[in-house]
């Protein structure tokens, strides 16, 4: 049963490009949706399990884009190497910021604010650091199809990379959730003091969660840069931070299925509204999106996770877990 579901999942993911008729524009959109969903899934580690409302996703995503892009543009280094290097760089930055923060007991609103501040600080640093980025867009050399360099004219290439990334992120997160680390993280979220008194090394687990999440967020940034073919400090985007956190909250903190499902649905709705309404009144789709978010958060503070879980419970047990 388990193998069947996995196989079904793989086939379904693989089929999406054909469902959109191989149209490059729609492929671009579904790839973006899966990219942002990947960050939401990874965010569960720090936010859903660690209980830290992190708003640094834009910082790590941007770092991934800039580092991967820089290596591709300046040294002709393959994007695949770039993804790993930028992931490591992001995890390094996460450590530098996370270690003192957790050690000095930064939490709740102060943690959220400091992670948001990080996005803006990094954006301005790379704006001033003209050797690496600077105010001018940098363009990654064009290639019709070069899988080794990780650059292609068609979006289907990026779609499959992203789909694979989303699937592996999901597997990593679900595995961590069931591991000892996951249990510790959840105990931290429920009651940090109690967890600490029971001898859980609170800082270490929070830091681990933060570093894994920042690594994955950076990889999404690297894929994005290679797909759009340029990088710029504006890719340190606070909106990605806010979007990630709200989608994860609406999906249900700590739920496994809710966040990705909600993220895919809401981002699809957002794109649909953008295409249909965006031309009528610019920005109208954004307002509707905002209202949906506020209403869900106000009336379902636990998000849609419990709802989705109960729906999933109707499936045979083997499908559920």
């Amino acid at each position: 049963m388990k193998t069947y579901s996995a196989l079904g999942a793989a086939i379904a993911l693989a089929a999406v490009p054909f469902l959109v008729g191989l149209n490059e524009y729609y492929l671009f959109l579904v790839t973006l949706i899966l990219l942002y969903t990947t960050i939401v899934v990874a965010w569960q580690l720090i936010g859903g399990y660690g209980g830290q409302l992190d708003l640094g996703a834009g910082a790590y995503h941007g770092l991934g884009a800039v580092v991967t892009g820089f290596l591709m543009v300046n040294y002709g280094v393959s994007g695949w190497v770039g993804l790993l290097v930028s992931g490591a760089a992001a995890a390094g930055v996460a450590f530098l910021i996370g270690y003192p923060s957790f050690r000095l007991g930064l939490k709740e609103v102060w943690y959220a604010l400091s992670s948001l501040a990080l996005v803006l600080i990094l954006q301005k640093i790379f704006l001033l650091w003209t050797d690496v980025a600077g105010p001018l867009e940098r363009y990654i050399p064009y290639a019709e199809f070069d899988p080794v360099f990780m650059r292609a004219g068609t979006k289907i290439f990026y779609y499959y990379i992203t789909a694979a990334l989303l699937a592996s992120t999901f597997l990593i997160v679900s595995r961590i959730r069931r591991s000892k680390t996951g249990l510790y993280l959840i105990s931290i979220r429920e009651n940090e003091e109690a967890a600490e008194m029971l001898g859980v090394d609170v800082r270490r687990y929070k830091l681990q969660a933060l570093m894994i999440y920042s690594f994955i967020a950076a990889v999404t940034g690297g894929i994005y840069a290679s797909m759009v073919g340029f990088y710029h400090p504006t890719l340190f985007d606070s909106w990605i931070s806010i979007q990630t956190a709200t989608l994860a909250i609406v999906g249900g903190l700590g739920h496994l299925l809710g966040p990705p499902i909600v993220s895919i649905i809401l981002l699809t709705v957002q794109e649909y509204l953008r295409i249909t309404l965006g031309a009528v009144i610019i920005g109208l789709h954004q307002v509707i999106f905002g209202i949906i978010l506020v209403v869900i958060i106000m009336f379902k503070p636990d998000g849609l996770g419990p709802l989705i879980d109960s729906l999933a419970r109707r499936f045979p047990a083997s499908v559920r877990r």
Binding site: M1, K2, Y4, S5, A6, G8, A9, A10, A12, L13, A15, V16, L19, V20, V30, I33, L34, A167, F170, L171, S174, L256, L257, P260, I261, I264, I265, T268, A312, F315, S318, V319, R320, R321
Partner: peptide
């Protein structure tokens, strides 16, 4: 095999 559910949701959402 939660993956299946997620992916099916994705496929349905996108094709709609």
């Amino acid at each position: 095999m939660v993956v299946a559910v997620v992916v099916i949701a994705a496929v349905v959402g996108i094709s709609v």
